[in-house]
Write a protein that binds this DNA or RNA. Structure first.
Length: 727
DNA sequence: ACTACGAGACTTTTT
DNA sequence: GTCTCGTAGT
């Protein structure tokens, strides 16, 4: 049976496109992964390429694994030599192979975001930077943003004193990373981009090899990733990219959907193929999604359709408060389960994680099994991070971040004082903390308290003992040794909530054993570094109760790429979804709408939309207004469960938000208004001038609105007194 | 050196 | 409401 059978004409055309760069605009549920993997299989099967000539980039490890699995299912080939992975994973591979040319130590370590933030805080403390004026988070954002643009500190344009200072710190940060032999996520990409652009032989070697480059989720690529692709492709190789501009929901972390717009000209793509047939949902669901996304201006334009039936209407529920909303969802989920729908085929989606608590509570009380996605991942747990820090020290003791994490954990009497002394010494002698500690122990210098010296001496002796015991041991044994010798096991045995943590440490050993099995080749020394890289790059989907039949709880972001029989979209209120923060950002509202589009297109058969008039948020009760997105949905595709579609009855809203380009939309539906003022509305104030309403709460004489004034900033105003006029 | 308590934050997230 | 972080107290 041919690998091409069962493809629709557009899919077939995309899969069998001649050797030329191409862009495939693939809507939700249109079989984009299938097209991508079949294309690879087809290239290999028809001998246009060997597996070695193919490079495929995805966004998540999960997607990469799935792609490899599908290729192996189609072709009897060894996928081991193929380069299929995330941008970060592939760059890591490249840098490990050419660490010297890249100017990195052989065992360079990868920091995750938390490690990076800790390093930044440490850097700022060392330089005596006022963290009130320059928050560490902001510097982290600045650095990552610059790197995602492909810019080193020397290339960043600074317009004011503030960004000038940040940029100075960026330079100092890079220097510190280099000294410690650590690399952040964006650095992996930037470094390998620099490597390839600097070294002509390397560039030519890889260009000669990767004649077919395939890219998944192009709409989520950053500027730097795009440049990386361009550099690797050169003038002769083909790039086959798949993406959906309507599902671009990661602009906030540097993704730019404009890469989709410039792709055709930059890569000389002759063809753009649209995949618009959806194999997932019934027509009503797609019609709603199409109607909603039409309200966005910045689009390439595409309309999903299905050969399946019309299906049922979407159900809208108006709750009195958030507790009642959760109650409704629980009831309906129970009823669906009674009808024989698997709980794991039902998802409750929400905009922000904070909303899960109440739902969890309701589900727990009703004894419905559920699983929450997101949250702490396996390799991010503190006990695992501690063990990994010891491992990092076995690989490279100059890693200051690792030293600081475990120098006094488990407690060994090294307090802030002795630590400060050590840091000062390291700064003076321009060496790592480890070097400073070694010198201190060797020379027995400085007349500090003997107890403190003993602490540091103890630590140095411990790490040295570990390094010598571990040399020659297999990786899982190394981890066992580290957990034992460090005293982590003893420490957690003595804690009352330590059992779970001990389990996780055991799981870490298992993970290492699995890793060794899957990567049989390299030498023992590199295996440790490879495992640490694996731990940093793959935060780990490791979660308990994987296979159990449980209701799925997650944010809309984490639902991307998934599908369910039934989907609940909860908390459809102004300020929550669309989120209030998004309203003040350029393009924010359109991104929120794409997010809503993603949420809608997750459902195969049934879709519930719910909102609540009252909600506890940040410990305060807020009075919400139905999301504007509900007003962008055709009225005849919705069946209200308990509220009226009040087009006929309600008074026209004062200053109702309705952008001019919406005139063509089908009869939009009005929710009864709670306030004459709506979030997102432009207003004028006699004293503060022009602004936009970003939040509203209370009713009648208690009604207040929060307004972001262009000049005067954000203010809360009581509607009874403030003389606001619509603008 | 360690622990406890209070202030402030708090969208989304993969790598 | 709940978590993290920093400082003051033991």
């Amino acid at each position: 049976m041919s690998i091409l059978s069962g493809l629709n004409p557009e899919q077939l055309k995309a899969v069998t496109l001649p050797k030329r760069s191409a862009l495939v605009l693939a809507g939700a549920g249109s079989g984009k992964t299938r097209v991508l993997t079949t294309r690879i299989a087809w290239l290999i099967q028809t001998r246009q390429a060997s597996p070695l000539n193919v490079l495929a980039v995805t966004f998540t490890n999960k997607a990469a694994r799935e792609m490899l699995a599908r290729i192996s299912a189609m072709l009897p080939i060894n996928t081991h030599g193929m380069w299929v992975g995330t941008f970060h994973g592939l760059c890591n591979r490249l840098l490990r192979a050419h660490y010297r040319e890249a100017g990195l130590p052989q065992l360079f370590q990868i920091m995750d975001s938390a490690d990076q933030l800790a390093l930044i805080k440490r850097l700022m403390k060392g330089l005596n930077v006022d963290d009130e004026k320059y928050p560490a988070k902001q510097l982290q954002y600045f650095i990552n943003d610059a790197k995602e643009q492909g810019l080193r500190a020397a290339q960043v344009e600074t317009l004011d004193d503030f960004s000038c200072k940040l940029n100075e710190l960026y330079a100092a940060y890079d220097e510190l990373c280099q000294r410690e032999g650590v690399v952040d996520f964006a650095e992996l990409l930037l470094r390998s981009h620099e490597l390839l652009s600097r070294s002509k032989p390397l560039r030519e070697h890889y260009r000669g090899r990767f004649q077919h480059i395939l890219v998944d989720e192009l709409q989520d690529t950053s500027r730097l990733q795009y440049l990386w692709l361009k550099l690797l492709a050169g003038p002769d190789n083909t790039v086959f990219a798949v993406g959906d501009d309507d599902q671009s929901i990661y602009a906030f972390r540097g993704a730019s959907a404009t890469n989709m717009l410039s792709f055709e000209s930059d890569f000389g793509a002759a063809t753009v193929i649209k995949l618009e047939q959806n194999y997932r949902s019934h027509a009503n669901i797609l019609d709603v999604a199409n109607a909603l996304i039409r309200h966005n201006k910045a689009r390439l334009g595409k309309n999903l359709w299905t050969a399946e039936g019309q299906g049922e209407l979407l159900r809208l529920y108006r709750a009195v408060n958030d507790i009642e909303e959760a109650g409704f969802i629980v009831e309906e989920a129970n009823a669906l389960a009674a009808e024989g729908i698997n709980l794991s085929d039902i998802a409750v989606l929400y905009r922000s994680n904070a909303q899960s608590r109440l739902l969890e509570h309701a589900l727990f009380s009703a004894a419905i099994p559920y699983r929450v996605y997101g949250g702490l991942r396996f390799f991010e747990r503190q006990e695992v991070k501690h063990a990994l820090a010891y491992l990092r020290l076995v690989a490279n003791p100059d890693d200051d971040g690792a030293v600081l994490r475990v120098i006094n954990f488990p407690l060994r009497g090294i307090g802030s004082r002795s630590l400060a002394q050590l840091q000062e010494q390291a700064l003076e002698q321009r060496c790592s903390l480890w070097q400073a500690a070694l010198r201190r122990v060797e020379n027995k210098v400085s007349g500090n308290d003997p107890v403190q010296r003993k602490g540091i001496e103890g630590f140095v002796a411990l790490i040295e003992a570990m390094r010598s015991t571990c040399s020659g041991l297999a990786l899982p044994e190394v981890i066992e040794q580290v957990i034992e010798q460090s005293g982590l096991r003893r420490h957690y045995q003595g804690q009352k909530d330590g059992a779970d943590r001990l389990d996780n440490l055991g799981e870490l050993t298992n993970a290492a054993a699995t890793f060794v099995n899957e990567n049989p080749e390299p030498s023992a020394q590199n295996l440790l570094a490879d495992f640490l890289a694996h731990a940093a790059l793959e935060a780990g989907e490791h979660q308990a109760g994987e296979g159990a039949d449980a209701l799925q709880l997650m944010t809309v972001h984490s639902a991307k790429g998934l599908e369910f029989h039934t989907v609940f979209i909860s908390g459809l209120e102004e300020g929550l979804f669309p989120h209030e923060q998004s309203l003040v950002e350029a393009g924010g509202l359109e991104e929120e709408r794409r997010l809503m589009y993603v949420a809608l297109t997750r459902a195969r058969r049934r879709l519930y939309l719910s909102f609540s008039q009252e909600r506890m948020l940040h410990g305060q009760t807020r009075y919400g207004i139905a999301s504007r997105f509900l007003g962008e949905i055709p009225i005849d595709l919705i069946k209200p469960v308990n509220c009226s579609l009040s087009n006929e009855t309600s008074e026209p809203l004062v200053g109702e938000l309705k952008p001019a380009h919406l005139d063509t939309a089908p009869a939009a539906f009005n929710i009864e208004a709670w306030s004459a003022w709506r979030v997102g509305q432009n207003v004028l104030h006699p004293k503060f001038g022009a602004g936009v309403i970003v939040n509203a709460e209370g009713r009648g004489s208690d009604a207040r609105v929060q307004v972001n004034f262009h000049k005067a900033g954000v203010k809360w105003l009581a509607l009874e007194y403030a003389k606001l006029t619509a603008a």
